[in-house]
Computed example of a mutant assay.
Amino acid sequence: MSTTSSEEDSGLTPDQLQFFNENGYLVVPDALPPSTVAALLDETHRLLDSFSLADHPMTRFSTGGEDGTGDDHVGDAYFLDSGSKIRFFFEEDAVDASGNLTKPKHLAVNKIGHYLHGLSPPFASLLKTSPASSSSPGTYIPDLRARPAAVARALGFADPRCLQSMVICKQPEIGGAVPPHQDSTFLYTRPPSAVGFWYALEDATLENGCLSFLPGSHRWAPIEKRLVRKAGANEGTEMVPNDGPRFPPGEEYGEDKRPVGRSREEEEYVPGEVKAGSLVLIHGNLLHKSERNTSEKGRIIYTFHVIEGGEGRVYDERNWLQMPPGEGFTPLFD
């Protein structure tokens, strides 16, 4: 599906921007050309095949309990130091009580993170804004739709920064459920500003655990808790009450925007089945989730998150993810 130069320059059409603002999410079909999807899958399989188990701490990724706000999130040094590295985290059901894998390693990994956008040239290419910007790792993709920088500009970012990136493998038969959560709980700025860019590298369906969204919840669901590093500890994370702003700036946000007469439990989630190559944008306050994958077909996605790095936004030193050394989080604007 082709786009005009004005659509590419704007990142989002007016209708797309309106849908995102009203619902808190947006699906952009065919955002990645097939050749790029293939290249990213090839890189994913190369990473899965090449990492060593010899010195791996067998860290498993935990989703934080039934409601996503529990205290059992992963928090060892291998995880906490991953902001400037590429590291591998296993599905909870892929490791037995003795710490041994119950599946081949390429079918046991839940997540690869969190600096793919800095250390993997194929993934870094998605952030390139022009051929001139491709001198550093990553090759400019000429037919990439909805370029992240252009999308961020359309969403009102002044200085968008990519702070983490991940490949998530919803593995066949053991792919864990992710309970309802909000991304700004884990990637907090004062005030909240996170937006997720979620790319399907394989079809995501109801059968293999696609995302589901609670439309409009970004307007009324506050960021009540935050995942932070435990104070005075070299390892460990915990959920703490959020004592800062709970919504982005704007009169459209607030707990009084909640639909009258309906509890959170009565709200209906909308499934987001998407084809490979699709981009899903996710507001940091939006409640979303995914179910277990008990099917024989997995799904692989790539996601990165953008926060506002401009004036008036503070990235808290308690956040579990800290800035990599040097220039800090990766700017989207050249």
Rank of each mutant, 00 (worst) to 15 (best):
159 D>P: 00
198 W>R: 10
199 Y>P: 12
160 P>W: 04
180 P>C: 01
180 P>V: 06
189 T>D: 05
199 Y>R: 03
199 Y>A: 01
165 S>N: 10
193 S>G: 09
168 I>D: 04
167 V>Y: 03
178 V>G: 08
187 L>H: 08
201 L>P: 08
204 A>H: 12
157 F>L: 07
178 V>Y: 09
165 S>Q: 13
158 A>M: 04
182 Q>L: 10
190 R>V: 14
184 S>A: 13
190 R>A: 12
190 R>N: 11
185 T>R: 04
184 S>T: 12
177 A>P: 04
187 L>D: 06
192 P>T: 07
164 Q>Y: 14
182 Q>W: 05
184 S>L: 01
182 Q>E: 11
161 R>A: 06
202 E>F: 00
176 G>L: 09
159 D>Y: 01
189 T>W: 00
158 A>I: 05
177 A>S: 09
204 A>V: 12
190 R>D: 10
189 T>Y: 00
159 D>S: 06
170 K>L: 02
171 Q>Y: 00
196 G>N: 12
189 T>G: 06
205 T>H: 10
161 R>I: 01
205 T>L: 15
185 T>H: 01
158 A>K: 07
187 L>W: 03
157 F>W: 05
165 S>V: 10
163 L>K: 13
175 G>P: 09
157 F>A: 01
198 W>D: 09
186 F>E: 04
174 I>A: 14
158 A>S: 11
160 P>G: 03
171 Q>G: 00
194 A>W: 00
180 P>W: 06
170 K>W: 01
157 F>R: 01
197 F>A: 02
176 G>W: 00
194 A>K: 05
206 L>M: 14
